[in-house]
């Protein structure tokens, strides 16, 4: 098993593991951010360049450093490899550059965007972006398109991660959308605004890291952080039926796949579960969904509230103890 060292922390990983996967196994602060990589989608990653890292030692066999920064999501580890992520100023600067590039044509319309709160670009910009923009030209704009009754495509927000294309390629039987045009005029679109009407098409919404593909049955109903995520399941003949319900009061506002710590879907769900079963009685509720506290989406969630309460109680007990 090859051993890799990332920012001074070593781990042994199975053959074929990428640097990003190894970093996620270690966990903590040194995991490179990723926008276009998705653990459940083959050949994803390599496009957005946010996860670039520096390989300061190639391997035990060939200790030469790699000449350029490499995308950690597409670079497999070698035995003895040494990687610098947060410890390399070069990496951090290049990453800030990538974030700036991703944002120059982004509309920055978070206040009216449904993805706000669970947007990877928002998190990325928050962690690696600059406070000001140096881009003073007109931003690129596209028309909004309804692709089918359930999905809204707002290309202006797209960062070209190709995850929705890979979903269509890998889990549906017929892909009807793809990349049109070239360079900064390129867009994700369906052929002559075809309708994406596959049973699993709804998953493109979940893999979209930004607000380019949104759920038309949920648009403008609520900000995500006012809804409560609950794990639930039902017997479904098409998919696993394991979902997350996003509730407000007694109402189920939307149904999504269960997303892991990195915001990546665990199992795909069908459109029936996603769009048509919006009543609490359709589901067997398992309990609250754990949301990783790094994002604004976790605010207001009772797990965190409980954790905060615990801290508060501990603090007060301490204060009380010191008073005595």
């Amino acid at each position: 098993m090859p051993k890799v060292t990332i920012d001074g922390q070593s781990i042994e990983v199975p053959d074929g593991t990428t640097i990003l996967q190894a970093a996620r196994m270690i966990g903590g602060e040194n995991v490179p951010p990723a926008m276009c990589y998705h653990s459940k989608l083959k050949t994803s990653g390599g496009y957005c360049r946010t996860c670039i890292v520096k390989v300061s030692k190639g391997s035990d066999k060939d200790p030469r450093p790699m000449p350029k920064l490499v995308p950690s999501c597409r670079t497999t580890v070698m035995d003895g490899m040494e990687v610098q992520n947060n410890t390399s100023p070069e990496v951090l600067e290049a990453r800030r550059g990538v974030v700036e590039f991703l944002l120059i044509n982004h509309p920055l319309d978070c206040p009216v965007c449904d993805q706000a709160g669970e947007c990877h670009l928002q998190d990325l910009g928050y962690e690696n972006g600059a406070a000001n923009t140096r881009y003073d030209f007109k931003r690129r704009k596209f028309k909004q398109i309804d692709i089918g009754p359930y999905i809204k495509l707002h290309m202006t927000r797209c960062i070209m991660c190709f995850r929705c294309v890979k979903v269509a390629d890998q889990i549906t039987d017929n892909r009807v959308h793809g990349m049109l045009n070239r360079g900064d005029a390129s867009e994700i679109s369906t052929y002559i605004e075809n309708v994406i009407s596959n049973d699993f098409s709804g998953n493109v919404i979940d893999v979209c890291p930004v607000g380019a593909l949104t759920d038309r049955t949920f648009r403008f109903k609520s900000r995500v952080w006012f809804t409560k995520p609950m794990d639930a399941h039902r017997n479904c003949t098409k998919c696993s039926g394991k979902v997350t319900l996003w509730e407000k009061g007694e109402e189920v506002l939307r149904v999504t796949t269960r997303k892991d710590k990195w915001g990546e879907s665990e199992e795909w769900i069908c459109n029936e579960c996603r769009f048509e079963k919006k009543h609490i009685n359709d589901w067997v509720v398992e309990g609250p969904r754990h949301i990783d506290p790094h994002s604004v989406i976790s605010l207001n969630h009772y797990e965190n509230v409980a954790a905060k309460l615990k801290l508060d109680i501990a603090k007060q007990q301490k204060q009380l103890a010191s008073k005595k």
């Binding site: 030209f137 360079g183 390129s186």
Partner: peptide, 21 residues
């Protein structure tokens, strides 16, 4: 270069257009 960028990866897609402008 702006015209010929394929649009796959972010630095080239966005950066070439910015430089041209």
């Amino acid at each position: 270069y702006h015209h010929e960028s394929c649009g796959q990866c972010s630095p080239c897609r966005e950066g070439t257009g910015w430089m041209e402008k």
